[in-house]
């Protein structure tokens, strides 16, 4: 195997709180090649913080430290803000949960996608427009010529998320971080969006980090899964083995899901073992 695309070792993030700093991430480590990695966990487990730390998008007051945080040849910890501007959107793209909040409501779809392309390439206006139309077609938008001139409020949720994928992938990033890309969408649209995302990521040979709270979805979609709790990685396993997970946290997370095939009298409410919160020493 070649050098990993992303190398994260002992990443720690702390936010200021009323009583000094409180830890959001307490030493997580993983590497990512050109594959699909899922990060699952409940709210507050630190999964989104991990994604944002890679993009260096945390609030300035957050305290970040790591033994290593590298994107192939770039050290993300020491990179200058100018370098980071190239990396964000250029080499690493982030897809957020709700297109209604993530798109600029005052600019047309086309203008936003073109902007993202022209910032990261030296393309002229005409070329950018052609690429934008092609990209919209790539995310299976039926009538790109009409859609480029629409404003975000004129789009449905699924269409908005396609536009976001187009905008994020047009600069051909090496790494895509998708933070709950489908949780604001209806189930019937969810599958299509994931398929499109998968198709584009594979076509461009990028790595993908899918952050989600949805265990079945992640096990279906990803190659490898990190299960997080309390700012630490509880377990790392191949996605298809998720149902045979051994860590009690993963097992209980699975059991708390209402089954679709058979009736149960009472759902299992996960009980948290305080020992999961003590820091794992390596």
């Amino acid at each position: 195997m070649t050098d990993p695309l992303l190398d994260v070792r002992n990443l720690r993030v702390a936010y200021p709180s009323a009583h000094g700093y409180s830890d959001a991430l307490r030493g997580i480590s993983f590497t990512l090649g050109r594959e699909k990695l899922g990060i699952v966990g409940e709210s507050g487990s630190g999964k989104s913080t991990a994604g944002r730390a890679i993009m260096r998008l945390l609030p300035p007051k957050a305290r970040v430290s790591a033994d290593a945080l590298r994107l192939s040849d770039v050290d993300l910890l020491t990179a200058s803000e100018a370098q980071m501007r190239d990396i964000r959107g250029g080499r690493v793209a982030m897809i957020l949960q709700d297109p209604r909040y993530a798109l600029n409501p005052l600019k047309t779809v086309g203008a936003q996608i073109m902007e993202s392309y022209r910032i990261h390439t030296r393309a002229g206006r005409a070329e950018a427009r052609d690429r934008t139309l092609a990209m919209l077609e790539d995310v299976h938008i039926r009538d790109p010529r009409r859609v480029v001139d629409l404003y975000p409020h004129e789009l449905s949720g699924g269409m908005g998320q396609r536009v976001m994928i187009a905008m994020m992938l047009i600069a051909s990033p090496e790494l895509v971080i998708a933070d709950e890309p489908t949780s604001a969408l209806d189930v019937t649209v969810r599958g299509q969006i994931l398929e499109i995302l998968n198709e584009r990521v594979e076509a461009q040979g990028a790595g993908l980090i899918l952050i989600s709270h949805d265990l079945p979805l992640v096990s279906d979609f990803c190659d490898r899964v990190l299960v997080m709790y309390g700012g630490q990685v509880m377990e790392e396993l191949a996605a298809r083995d998720l149902s045979q997970a051994t860590h009690p946290y993963t097992v209980s997370l699975h059991a708390s899901l209402p089954p679709l095939d058979h009736a149960v009298d009472e759902l299992i409410v996960p009980e948290y073992d305080p020992s999961w919160l003590t820091e794992i020493r390596k």
């Binding site: 409940e42 997370l253 409410v269 996960p270």
Partner: peptide
Amino acid sequence: LDVSVQAGVLNVLN
């Protein structure tokens, strides 16, 4: 709610 929290609320409702 999270699925783990959802389980508790659904149990209470039932």
